[in-house]
C-alpha cells in the first residue's frame, strides 16, 4: 500500500529537477529535455490521481499530453536546428539579442 501522496511528492521532486535544468543549463537541447522531464512529472501525478479516483480521465489527459509533447519536440527541435544554423551554437546565452 503506497499512499498517493508519495507519488505526488516524487512528482514534485522530478518537476523541481526539471525546472532546475531549465534554469542552470545553457545547452538548448538539455533545457528542452528538462521541459520533457517536467511534463513527465505532471503526467505521473495525473496517472496517480486517475488511479485513486478510479477514473480514466487522467489517463486520457496524459495520452494527449504525450501527443502534444511529440508535436512540441518536432517543432522545437526544428527551431533549435535553425538557430544552430544561424548562430553556430545552441548556447541559449548566445541568443540574447533582445536585451533591453
Amino acid at each position: 500500500m503506497v499512499p498517493i501522496n508519495y507519488y505526488i511528492v516524487l512528482s514534485a521532486i522530478l518537476f523541481t529537477i526539471g525546472a532546475l535544468g531549465v534554469l542552470v543549463r545553457r545547452n538548448a537541447l538539455i533545457i528542452f529535455m528538462s521541459i520533457e522531464l517536467m511534463l513527465n512529472a505532471a503526467n505521473l501525478a495525473m496517472v496517480a490521481f486517475s488511479s485513486v479516483l478510479q477514473s480514466f480521465s487522467g489517463q486520457i489527459f496524459v495520452f494527449f499530453v504525450i501527443a502534444v509533447a511529440a508535436a512540441e519536440v518536432a517543432v522545437g527541435l526544428a527551431l533549435i536546428v535553425e538557430i544552430f544554423k544561424s548562430k553556430r551554437s545552441i548556447d541559449v546565452d548566445q541568443i540574447s539579442s533582445l536585451k533591453g
Binding site: 534554469l23 540574447s96 536585451k99
Partner: peptide, 14 residues
Amino acid sequence: VQNGFVRSYALSVL
C-alpha cells in the same frame, strides 16, 4: 534584469 538571457527570465518565473 533586462539582460536578454532567457534563463534569467525563466528564473523570475520560478
